[in-house]
């Protein structure tokens, strides 16, 4: 694409983007935080496993007595 066509496309894009509806940062931050709080319970990388035995990558014990 030529320089001119690229610039034209960019102008159109910027006009479109200027017209989109925005939310306040404070509002979107609150929503990101609530999403996080709603899912944090199941996020084992944050809260850890309640029992290490549930960790599929936990190394097996060295020996087992039956």
């Amino acid at each position: 694409m030529s320089n001119l066509a690229t610039q034209r496309k960019l102008v159109e894009q910027l006009r479109r983007e200027g017209a989109i509806e925005r939310k306040k940062v404070s509002q979107v931050c609150k929503e990101l935080i609530s999403f996080c709080e709603a899912h944090q319970q199941n996020d084992v990388l944050v809260s850890g496993f309640t029992n290490q035995k549930e960790n599929p990558f936990k190394e097996k014990a060295g020996c087992m007595i039956i």
């Binding site: 990101l32 709080e37 944050v46």
Partner: peptide, 12 residues
């Protein structure tokens, strides 16, 4: 930084 990913809740 070459690569990013997030935990299930997006916290990490």
């Amino acid at each position: 930084c070459n690569s990013v990913d997030m935990s299930l809740s997006g916290r990490l």
